[in-house]
Simulated scan of single mutants.
Amino acid sequence: MPVIVYDVPNWALGMGLVLTWVLLGLGAQAVLPRRWREHATEADRNVALASLGVIATINSLLLAFSAVSVWDSFSAAEQAVSREATAMAQLGRSLAVYGTPESTLARERLRGYGRSVIGKEWAAMQHEQPSQQTQDAFDDVYRSLGALRPASAAETVLVEQMWSQVNDLLMQRRARLEASDGKVPTTLWVVVLVSSLLTLAPVAVLPVTACSRGAIVVLAIALGLVFHFVAAMDRPFLGAERVTSDPIENALANMQRWDARSLPVAAR
């Protein structure tokens, strides 16, 4: 879906999609020449209903595939952000425990990376663009870890653990960036759209009655609701249902709380 769609409130997007499908369904029935329906035999109507069953089944499978696809992408993005925040919190605590000027610098750079993710990279991801400043901030964390020189066996073990944590942070960062590019391919959107329109076509040939119009409206509402779900979840970091940066913000807040509780100990 175009990025501009996600500036619309979620309820308005849903109502708009449902209304669009209802208008398409009723419009197709109104546009179809009346003489075609009048000359249609019972056998013709049976063929139309049979065709509706086949097309609806195929379209249901396509819509289900699209819904599962966008939900998997959304879940992957959510998990990547949560795991990145966890890796950041673990590394921050390890650096705080290490307690040298070099580790303090590395921890500040880690904090700077987290702020850059929230303040710069998050907005860039929403437009599928990279943030070089955030990448540079992450590289600075690596350089700071490279400056650590353990003086004891315990510090050596802790440094090895920190390297494992920063590598995990790198892996989760890449997973988040990959998830930001996840969306339904244009080809699939076109196929599902055409298939859904074909689903309404057999109903339009039925006689214009309250029952046939009701069937078109119900079918159109169902299509509109599914399209709303797929559209709302299509881009994990956009829209009302987007993945937020709350886990990373919480990780930074926990680092700040750790520092605040450590001040009295340092003073003594």
Results as ranks from 00 to 15, higher is better:
residue 57 T to M: 04
residue 60 S to M: 09
residue 76 A to T: 09
residue 63 L to C: 07
residue 60 S to R: 13
residue 65 F to H: 07
residue 89 A to I: 03
residue 88 M to K: 13
residue 77 A to K: 07
residue 78 E to H: 15
residue 85 A to R: 12
residue 67 A to G: 10
residue 63 L to F: 01
residue 71 W to R: 10
residue 68 V to K: 13
residue 79 Q to P: 06
residue 76 A to L: 13
residue 86 T to R: 12
residue 84 E to W: 07
residue 79 Q to R: 15
residue 76 A to N: 13
residue 86 T to G: 10
residue 61 L to M: 05
residue 73 S to M: 10
residue 86 T to D: 06
residue 58 I to N: 04
residue 83 R to E: 13
residue 86 T to F: 06
residue 66 S to L: 07
residue 88 M to Y: 12
residue 60 S to K: 11
residue 65 F to E: 02
residue 58 I to F: 11
residue 73 S to H: 07
residue 68 V to S: 11
residue 70 V to T: 05
residue 58 I to Y: 07
residue 63 L to A: 08
residue 62 L to T: 01
residue 76 A to M: 12
residue 68 V to L: 13
residue 75 S to L: 03
residue 73 S to V: 04
residue 82 S to A: 06
residue 63 L to G: 04
residue 81 V to G: 08
residue 74 F to V: 00
residue 63 L to Y: 01
residue 69 S to K: 05
residue 68 V to Q: 13
residue 71 W to T: 09
residue 82 S to D: 03
residue 69 S to T: 06
residue 67 A to N: 09
residue 77 A to G: 12
residue 76 A to Q: 14
residue 80 A to C: 03
residue 87 A to C: 14
residue 79 Q to N: 14
residue 78 E to N: 14
residue 83 R to W: 07
residue 71 W to G: 06
residue 89 A to S: 14
residue 80 A to K: 10
residue 64 A to P: 03
residue 81 V to N: 14
residue 82 S to F: 02
residue 66 S to W: 05
residue 69 S to Q: 05
residue 64 A to H: 04
residue 89 A to W: 06
residue 75 S to Q: 08
residue 58 I to Q: 05
residue 83 R to T: 10
residue 61 L to I: 02
residue 81 V to Y: 12
residue 85 A to E: 09
residue 74 F to R: 07
residue 67 A to L: 08
residue 63 L to Q: 00
residue 59 N to P: 00
residue 86 T to N: 11
residue 70 V to A: 01
residue 81 V to R: 08
residue 84 E to T: 09
residue 81 V to I: 12
residue 70 V to S: 01
residue 81 V to H: 14
residue 61 L to W: 08
residue 77 A to H: 07
residue 79 Q to M: 13
residue 71 W to N: 12
residue 59 N to H: 07
residue 86 T to V: 04
residue 70 V to I: 01
residue 58 I to P: 05
residue 80 A to E: 00
residue 79 Q to V: 08
residue 72 D to W: 15
residue 73 S to E: 03
residue 87 A to P: 12
residue 75 S to M: 05
residue 63 L to S: 02
residue 81 V to L: 10
residue 68 V to H: 14
residue 74 F to D: 01
residue 74 F to L: 06
residue 65 F to I: 07
residue 69 S to A: 13
residue 58 I to D: 05
residue 83 R to G: 13
residue 74 F to P: 00
residue 62 L to S: 07
residue 84 E to R: 07
residue 72 D to Q: 15
residue 86 T to A: 08
residue 65 F to A: 00
residue 70 V to M: 00
residue 60 S to N: 14
residue 85 A to Y: 14
residue 85 A to Q: 11
residue 64 A to T: 06
residue 71 W to C: 08
